[in-house]
Amino acid sequence: MTTPLKILITGEHGQVSRELQQRLQNLGELIVLGRNQLDLANVDQIRQQVRAHRPDLIINAAAHTAVDQAESEPDAAFTINAIAPGVLAEQAKALGIPLIHYSTDYVFDGSKTAPYTEADTPNPLGIYGQSKLAGEQAIVAVGGEYLILRTSWVYSNHGKNFLLTLQRLLQEKPHMRIVADQIGAPTWAGTIANSTRALIERWQAGQAGDWGVYHLTGQGETSWFGFAQAIGEHLRAEGKACAELEAIPSSAYPTPAKRPLNSRLDCSHLQQQWQVSQPQWHDALRECLAEQH
Results as ranks from 00 to 15, higher is better:
R150Q: 04
G126K: 07
P174I: 02
P174G: 09
I31F: 14
A247R: 08
E246G: 07
T79K: 08
I31S: 11
Q280L: 15
S263I: 07
R47L: 02
E19A: 14
L95Y: 04
Y106E: 13
A114V: 12
E246C: 06
A82K: 02
R177K: 15
Q45S: 15
E244M: 15
L149Q: 06
A247K: 06
P249K: 00
W188Y: 15
Q69L: 15
W224A: 09
G34F: 08
A76C: 13
E246S: 12
W211T: 05
V32D: 03
K6R: 15
Q130R: 11
R286V: 14
D56T: 07
L235R: 01
I192W: 01
L30N: 12
T255W: 00
A230L: 13
A62S: 11
A41Y: 04
W274N: 09
T217K: 01
G144W: 06
S156G: 12
S17P: 00
G28N: 02
Q204E: 08
Q171R: 11
L265V: 09
T151G: 00
S111F: 03
H101K: 14
A41W: 02
L40C: 12
W224V: 10
A114Q: 11
R177I: 05
Q167F: 09
I148M: 01
W188Q: 09
L30F: 08
L147V: 07
I127R: 03
L163T: 02
D266A: 12
I183R: 13
L166P: 03
A257Y: 02
T117Q: 05
T79C: 06
L33M: 08
Q280F: 13
M1N: 04
Q69S: 14
T113K: 14
W153N: 05
S268D: 00
G226Q: 03
C288L: 04
R18S: 14
F225P: 01
T217E: 02
G96I: 09
G206F: 09
V43R: 13
L8M: 07
R35F: 05
L163R: 00
R177T: 04
H269I: 11
G143Q: 03
Y102W: 03
I100H: 01
H101T: 14
K240V: 09
L33S: 06
R202S: 12
I183K: 11
G11N: 03
D181H: 00
A228T: 10
T121M: 04
E19K: 14
A205R: 01
L24N: 04
R23F: 08
I200M: 07
A185S: 14
I192E: 01
D210M: 12
I183F: 11
I7V: 12
N42I: 10
A189M: 11
E73G: 10
Q171P: 11
G239N: 04
T117N: 04
A284P: 00
E287N: 05
L169A: 13
A66C: 13
I9D: 01
I83Y: 10
A208V: 14
I183V: 15
P260G: 04
V213D: 00
Q219Y: 08
P115N: 11
D56H: 07
S103H: 01
R47E: 10
P260S: 03
